[in-house]
């Protein structure tokens, strides 16, 4: 485009063709790789059954005297998300400072911090939960630890970005007042990033509530366990009420969290 804009250069067109060929072959490869023949013939009826289950859900399941009900399941789920988020909100702080370029003297140092964070992110929470089950046994606690560890990856990255955006001035002023490193941190850095930290933590809490609903699938507590039982036993009306419970809970959590986040920043 730097030369004569009126003349279309041929190599540009060739490049477009190359891109097109790559994309088309990617899709051919993908479509041929997936086995489509194994679909159950009763898929339609099952879908209808699930939808009907959601329209006429098993209301009795909301509260049962013996405690194995939707209400308790959702409370567990929220508790897992809350504790997991809380743990990661603190554990990620040192990583965040490590990964932010303006808090390190050397570029490679923050690079290592960033790599560790992205490494943690790649480890899915569900795999972590499987490993924690080996350590602390099945149950909600394994789920909490898994969420707590996994969330460090994302929260650490977001925190680091908040730290990188800060104004260096106040830190310089504090240094000039004779403050030591910790005092500079506490008086000049933390006040600048705290609202962001809180907002990101809430955002992560929203995500963790969603994640906590599935941890039960592998036995790490929460509503996932009864859901997978209901699916296995084809109890569609119970599947329906559990799905409704998840949708409502997550929506309410999102609304509250959004409201608070808007007030913070």
């Amino acid at each position: 485009m730097k030369n004569n804009p009126l003349i279309r250069r041929p190599w540009l067109r060739i490049r477009w063709w190359l891109v097109a060929v790559v994309i088309v072959s990617l899709y051919v490869w993908s479509f041929t790789g997936i086995e489509f023949s194994g679909i159950r013939e009763n898929a339609g009826t099952v879908t209808v059954a699930i939808l009907q289950g959601m329209i006429s859900p098993d209301w009795d399941y909301v509260y049962l005297a013996d405690g194995e009900d939707l209400l308790r399941g959702m409370i567990d789920t929220l508790a897992i998300a809350l504790l997991g988020t809380f743990i990661s909100a603190f554990l990620c702080i040192p990583f965040a400072f490590w990964a932010s370029t303006n808090m390190n003297r050397w570029k490679w140092s923050s690079g290592i911090g960033k790599f560790i964070l992205s490494f943690i992110r790649t480890f899915p929470e569900i795999v972590m939960a499987i490993m924690f089950i080996k350590a602390v046994g099945p149950g909600a606690y394994a789920g909490i630890l898994a969420l707590g560890l996994h969330s460090i990856g994302m929260l650490g990255k977001l925190y680091a970005e908040a730290i990188e955006k800060i104004d260096r001035g106040p830190a310089e002023a504090l240094l000039a007042c004779g403050a030591n490193r910790l005092q500079v941190m506490w008086y000049a850095v933390i006040p600048q990033v705290l609202p962001e930290f809180m907002s990101y933590t809430l955002y992560r809490f929203e995500i963790n509530v969603r994640s906590a609903t599935i941890l039960g699938i592998i036995g790490a507590g929460g509503i996932g366990t009864p859901l997978i039982f209901a699916l296995d036993s084809r109890n569609w009306s119970r599947v329906g009420i559990i799905l409704l419970g998840i949708i409502i809970t997550v929506s309410v959590v999102d609304m509250i969290s959004n409201y608070v986040r808007r007030k913070i920043v």
């Binding site: 310089e172 002023a173 007042c177 004779g178 403050a179 005092q183 006040p191």
Partner: peptide, 22 residues
């Protein structure tokens, strides 16, 4: 400083007190 270098989100008194940390 030219750009004041206050912590904008902190209160005025906290900014002034930060001069005492030493």
């Amino acid at each position: 400083f030219q750009s004041f270098n206050l912590v904008k989100r902190s209160s005025v008194i906290r900014n002034v007190l930060s001069g005492r940390v030493g």
